[in-house]
Write a protein that binds this DNA or RNA. Structure first.
Length: 421
RNA sequence: GGAGAGGUGGCCGAGUGGUUGAAGGCGCUAGUCUCGAAAACUAGUAUAGUCGUAAGGCUAUCGAGGGUUCGAAUCCCUCCCUCUCCGCCA
């Protein structure tokens, strides 16, 4: 969430930012009005509490002298009632304020182009070329079926649509990619985390999945847990409610997890094959950094993700997302899209974002500047990378006329084979 | 799942209704002492909200939330977590 003080002092800026994100700016003034009410009630009740405290201490002294304090006690009873009444009002106002505060999105960074639709995202870099072949390239769903390495139909039987089964070299390729990504991250100084795959409501709120994106998560109602939609959630919450020493910054973490997403509302859109599934594997990078360096760290993070695509020899481009296409909690975001030549489509395989203090404030994640008061850290994350679309692009990019697939060299040590089929 | 014990400041630990934001110790920071260090001694050492130009004041916080009371770390209720024993189990 945003800092209440910041909203108070920058009303117009916040409204502009919220509007550019295509969110409702009406909440901003509502929050400000609730904030005024809150402070008014707070002052009133705190004065009464101060009185209560001094008089109650007095009662103690009187009683210890074995004197009569019944008159004062009777008087304080009405004060106590008044406190209770105002406290209740205060509680209501505060709950509303917090509720609204959670519904105000983070505001975009000034370097982000203002825009309404994905069409206004900017392609800021492209790398690699499509394979130069003289045969018609197949989409991956045809390749994997013939090769028998991913079985969508049986996944549907076991669970439901969007739960593919990886078989034989398909499973091995998946495992190889996960290890490759994790090893690359470790080499860049990221500490590997293996987190829980279910999180509680507090964690989901910390990263912004709740209340905004509740419908996208699978819920274990019996225990009030959520299946992780991305490792971002458990990993970013690792130090929730903690104060990190400044010398530990930047904290760099990486994690492989399966990701579970209901993908409600996206039926029929790019759902063929591996393009959009309910359960998939992903390696995620997370950083906690000093507020002064978060935009430099964002570029480094993007580099870490890009390098993987380069090493895999895939064609990709980098999008700088416009304000209207930014997520609720993000101030700036790059998407990496890889080209899948069999279906002639760009597929999003990574999303690299800065959240500034927005998540960290929700999570109460701070650092202590040397000798100073605790401050909120900035959080960033990026996929490095999401597996299914990488596999899709990789299979399509490296297919042979016979429908076999050549494994990229960097993976040979991981797969133990160089050809599928 | 059953039975029991317990959750206090960075850590250990005292505290069963009346100056307890919280004794004492450890740790940490600064100072004294020392050629320097250790030891010893002295002082300081939470977070947040709110009012104030500031100094500073006030409020809240002893797992979380609610209740009783003029007054709660202390009594009551609910929940969470940890530990021990039993059961079950990869």
């Amino acid at each position: 969430m945003l800092d209440m003080k910041f909203i108070r002092e920058n009303r117009d800026k916040v409204i502009a930012g919220v509007t550019n994100k295509k969110e409702d700016p009406a909440f901003v003034d509502e929050v400000l009005s609730l904030d005024d009410q809150r402070r008014e009630l707070l002052q009133k009740v705190e004065q009464l509490k101060a009185k209560k405290n001094t008089v109650s201490a007095e009662v103690g002294k009187i009683k210890s002298r074995k004197e009569d304090a019944s008159a004062i006690i009777a008087e304080m009873k009405s004060v106590a009632d008044e406190i209770k009444t105002i406290d209740e009002q205060l509680g209501t106002v505060e709950a509303k304020r917090t509720d609204l505060l959670l519904q105000i999105p983070n505001i975009p960074h000034e370097s982000v182009p203002v825009g309404k639709s994905p069409a206004e995202n900017k392609v800021i870099a492209t790398h690699g070329d499509p394979p130069s072949v003289d045969f018609p390239m197949k989409p991956h769903w045809e390749l994997v079926e013939k090769l028998g390495i991913i079985d969508f139909a049986r996944g549907t039987k076991i669970t439901g649509a969007g739960f593919p089964v990886y078989i034989g070299k398909g499973a091995q390729l998946e495992r190889a990619l996960i290890n490759f990504f994790l090893d690359e991250a470790s080499a860049q100084g990221y500490t590997e985390i293996m987190p829980p795959l279910m999180v509680n409501a507090a964690s989901a709120t910390g990263t912004g999945q709740l209340p905004d994106k509740e419908d996208q998560m699978y819920v274990v109602t019996k225990d009030d847990f959520y299946l992780v939609p991305t490792a971002e959630v458990p990993v970013t919450n690792l130090y929730r409610d903690e104060i990190l020493p400044q010398k530990n910054l930047p904290v760099k973490l990486c994690a492989y997890t399966p990701c579970f997403r209901r993908e409600a509302g996206s039926y029929g859109k790019d759902v063929r094959g591996l393009n959009r599934v309910h359960q998939f594997n992903k390696v995620e990078l997370v950083k906690f950094v000093h507020p002064d360096s978060s935009y430099d760290e964002l570029e480094l993070l993007r580099g870490d993700a890009e390098r993987l695509l380069q090493k895999l020899g895939l064609q990709y481009h980098v999008l700088l997302m416009c304000t209207g296409d930014l997520g609720f909690t993000q101030t700036k975001k790059y998407d990496l899209e890889v080209f899948a030549p069999g279906q002639k489509k760009w597929l999003e395989v990574s999303s690299v974002s800065n959240f500034e203090s927005y998540q960290a404030r929700r999570m109460n994640l701070r650092f202590r500047p040397d000798g100073g008061k605790p401050e909120i850290v900035h959080t960033l994350n990026g996929s490095a990378l999401a597996l299914p679309r990488i596999v899709a692009a990789l299979l399509e990019h490296n297919q042979t006329p016979e429908g076999k697939v050549v494994v990229p060299k960097v993976l040979h040590g991981y797969t133990g084979f160089e050809l599928i089929g």
